[in-house]
Design a protein around this nucleic acid. Structure first.
Lengths: 355, 355
DNA sequence: TTGAAAGCGCTAACAG
DNA sequence: CTGTTAGCGCTTTCAA
């Protein structure tokens, strides 16, 4: 009677019942509603595919049990995690906040969740982070101007996860791209300041790759517009500060610049926060803005319009970047065709009192 | 030879092979390494539990296949998602950034990931967000001064997920708590300004519940210290602005306050960004800070020390809150006992040039 | 429309 | 220390 055969038969015949207190599952709901588990699944994910009667019974049961579907299980079975991972260098710089916010909102609106990762400005953690991300099988990844390592790019590509790179416009994106041209910004700001009659133009810039690239074009354009300066890039005084930038680095930057060349009449800063520092330092040292010094920022943060004087800055539409990235990823996840894989959201120089 | 029996036997004997191009699984690794899937699992999660020989073979196979464990499957089986959800009112206000950053870092360091949710300042989305969170069965949830709805609290409690509430000190936390007392801050700042000899004290405050509470204690303390003012709360001019606060709302706030009472000699702002707006507005209208007007902020953001004049503010250690919350949650997830469920990280008034 | 069967990829539990 | 077995809770697939 207790031989192996009967034992295993008994086991198979007696599925564990739902212990009281445990989180309810589809089976509990199905039992209560008097339908098959599959019908519960359908009622929740595709209400149109079940009869009104079943739908109602399932909803009642769900309500009564306080059932919340386990998305891990759902994701495993369906190979859709309804989750998107975003990687930013650091959240504290706050330049990407607008984008992260838009991303979170746009995703949430369509039932997706955001997983946030910070890569740091040094690429040490990049690999571990990538592993953690791929391991969760997100439906998409949003990269913010990072993933320099060729190996990282390959791994992402190999994982088959849709990727949107942002905040830049590179020639060969891994997959999709929503960004703007740092080169064009550098050029445009140089031309703008030159047009205003400024002839002792300087810059304070972060040391990350994009900022450096932007700045190179900025300096080159200034030189091209003022042949008298010659070809030496040093003719455009530039102060490089470590990322992330801050108000303090802006103040220190202007001091450093003035020590080198007191006659500077314009500064292009690689962030609005830094530009604010420049404004403050000028104020503290009695330099009149914009009369003696024109200041241009980057980002058009919410505070910039309220500064004293209001800050002229390069507006980048972080909200558009975030929303577009979410859109692309969700479309892809839901099998819709994505027409343009590369989107240039552009930029605008917003002219205010500081120039 | 092709009768049903042999067929089913064949089926059992021929598990689908790993199709080329598909993501590798434990089974693929196990086959390549010549071990059981379970040994692969052990080698990855608990290397000490397998022999060096197996460990090496598994590692080689993992490397060769580019295997990345599916954490959804792992989580489903082990009931540990190695994921923590954080809910903030909004990320753009930036007051919580330091905390979110610390949280992300502390979690990442121990192999956990952060899921970010924005509840908004209106409680409309709260319910959907909660559902999305619980559905992913995170190992913990960090709440930032929200979850007002009693139903929401109940659902969280019922889900059995460890919860850390932050940024406040309430009498009856859902579970754990890391925060500070808004009441004490209000009282402390009032006493501080009074001690400086200020007698026309005002406030500009956000309209969220915590700010309101902080402010009530602020006003009450001012009144208690200046009996001549009587008991009317209106004797402490207060400008309420909608959250999230901004530099612009600080400027507008000061204008509103001065219109009501031009003799104001001190303002307590519910955020550093707003205090900065007050500083700027004062500058623009020729009011000397701190001589004519003392300004106190809240948060000690990184820019505050570099303002002109440097801002006196209430320092709140967001990093400590984030790190502690992560610690509590991870300890709980790993079965370690948590001794104190309520932690008061306190606050400090950092005295600088604006007072 | 509805249901039954068969996993998704992993790990807990137990046997060897 | 290593392997086997049996699911975790859901959805895909196919049959009714």
């Amino acid at each position: 009677m207790d031989n192996p055969e009967t034992k295993s038969a008994e086991k198979a015949a007696a599925p564990r019942k739902s212990r009281k207190g445990a989180t309810p599952t589809v089976r509990d709901v199905a039992r209560l509603a008097g339908v098959a588990p599959m019908s519960v699944s359908r009622a929740m994910n595709n209400p149109d595919a079940v009869s009104p009667d079943i739908l109602q019974r399932v909803r009642d049961a769900v309500e009564q049990l306080g059932y919340v579907p386990n998305l891990l299980a759902g994701g495993l079975a369906s190979k859709k995690s309804r989750m998107v991972a975003a990687v930013v260098p650091t959240i504290s710089g706050s330049v990407f906040l607008e984008m992260v916010q838009a991303l979170t909102d746009a995703l949430a609106a369509r039932g997706y969740q955001l997983m946030l990762g910070q890569a740091g400005y040094e690429n040490s953690r990049e690999d571990a982070l990538l592993e953690a991300i791929i391991g969760r099988r997100p439906d998409g990844v949003v990269l913010t101007g990072i993933m320099r390592s060729e190996q990282g790019r390959r791994r992402l590509l190999a994982s088959g996860i849709p990727v949107v790179e942002t905040w830049d416009l590179t020639a060969d994106p891994i997959d999709m791209l929503v960004g703007f041209s740092h080169e064009k910004i550098g050029k445009a700001v140089a031309e703008y300041l030159h047009r205003l009659g400024r002839r002792r133009i300087a810059a304070i810039s972060a040391d990350d790759e994009r900022a450096v690239r932007r700045n190179r074009h900025f300096a080159e354009t200034v030189l091209a517009l003022q042949p008298a300066l010659g070809q030496d890039p040093a003719a455009v005084p530039t102060c490089i500060v470590p990322a992330p930038t801050s108000l303090g680095s802006g103040r220190a930057g202007l001091r450093a610049l003035l020590a080198r060349d007191p006659g500077i009449d314009a500064v292009f800063c690689s962030s609005d926060m830094m530009a604010q520092g420049v404004l403050l330092e000028a104020l503290a040292s009695g330099i009149k803005v914009p009369q003696q010094l024109a200041v241009v920022g980057l980002g058009d943060q919410s505070f910039s319009r309220d500064l004293y004087p209001p800050l002229t800055t390069v507006r980048i539409d972080g909200t558009a970047i975030g929303a577009t990235a979410a859109q692309l990823l969700i479309d892809r996840a839901e099998g819709k065709p994505v027409d343009e894989r590369i989107r240039d959201v552009g930029f605008v120089i917003v002219e205010r009192g500081s120039t």
